[in-house]
Design a protein around this nucleic acid. Structure first.
Lengths: 114, 114
DNA sequence: TCCGACTATTGACAAGCATCAATATTGACA
DNA sequence: TGTCAATATTGATGCTTGTCAATAGTCGGA
């Protein structure tokens, strides 16, 4: 009896009995949150905001080299994902890191490392 | 003198002196690694592999409900990103979590939380 | 009340990507 | 060496998304 035949002895498929533990979870939601962070521009925004505490949207246009609508779009993505906070003062909008939201968004990764 | 004029006193732009700290980094590379993880199917694969220690590619087709080429494509993405390892035994391919790679891929997020 | 500046939204377009069918490659076994 | 099974690659397609131009909304100040 070959190694393969032995492995297949108690099943009709490939190697193990294919009795996999299949964890459940809302992978779509988790991936959606991670996808918001997994973008070069949004990573740069997060890094800048984290380094400065609180940042006005108007000050991002220059270092990022992108148009105002594009930056506004990314800020909205980050805000909707709950990883940054927004505070409006007059016509200005100040953004800051939401540490709890960031930790929650990154939890699918950290949980894999234990 | 209004609040705004006071804020603008020493600059010709919006609120602060716009003297932002702008951290440097390879955001493209970091985002690329995160993007590999930020996918529902690949998150499911990682979760299954983590829960079973070592998993044969052939056993993933059933729980994921995807075609064999598609699963092979995702496994390649994860392997190239360094978040899983591959060991070939005969015609089978077994995959396992690469904890160091996963931690490295997630570091852009964990670094923001400190 | 009007004007100017900052921000947000809409519409459109190009690039990236997840998916599958078809095919190629590789390894075990007779 | 020939055949079969598991895996990987290629080509094609539809969907998602990052980007900008144009526009709308909003607030402060004269």
């Amino acid at each position: 009896m070959t190694v393969r035949e032995n492995l297949l002895a108690e099943s009709d498929v490939c190697p193990p009995g294919s009795t996999l533990v299949v964890p459940e979870g809302d992978f779509g939601r988790e991936a959606g949150l991670l996808k918001v962070i997994a973008d070069p521009t949004r990573l740069a925004i997060l890094r800048i905001v984290a380094a400065n505490g609180s940042v006005c949207a108007c000050d991002l246009e220059s270092p990022l080299g992108l148009s105002q609508p594009t930056i506004s779009h990314h800020l909205r993505q980050l805000f909707d994902a709950g990883v940054i906070t927004r505070e409006k003062r007059g016509t200005w909008a100040f953004y800051a890191i939401d540490r709890d939201g960031l930790q929650a968004a990154g939890s699918p990764i950290t949980a894999l490392i234990q």
